[in-house]
Amino acid sequence: MILTTSEKTSSSSDKLDESMVPAINIVFLLLIFFMIAGHIESRSDQLVIPTSSSETDLVLQDIEIRVMAGERYYLNDVQVEAKDLFEQVRQLSPALEVKIICRIHKDLPASSMDPVLQAVKKLGTKQLLLVTEQ
């Protein structure tokens, strides 16, 4: 009995595909690594946060104030006037025990922190979390 099967003719493209398999495995592993281990953040030269040796990881809160270069104030991504900061924060959260996060551009003068400090004090909020990086 003779069994004839159709001849396996592997084209050059098939061979190429097969030889690529280990490379794809590595690329997939790298992709998974970057997806899991990396953090995606929007970076802008308008907001370069200061460096510190703090080891405490940032715990996100409901209220975040950003002070960008040019002393532009943002409350939860909405631009606000410095003088309105207290009123806007109070409307967002009347509770006193709230913690407020502040991201501030490192090259700004210390006076640019004043509207934030004043708002926090007026609110009676006890803690301000300054965001830094190592």
């Binding site: 997806m35 953040e41 004090k121 830094t132």
Partner: peptide, 23 residues
């Protein structure tokens, strides 16, 4: 892969807790 390599950072943000005087 390129997207994740270029956009991700491995330096998570840290925080400094500050009390605000006087309360």
């Amino acid at each position: 892969l390129l997207f994740f390599m270029l956009s991700s950072t491995f330096n998570p943000a840290k925080q400094i807790e500050l009390n605000t005087a006087p309360q």
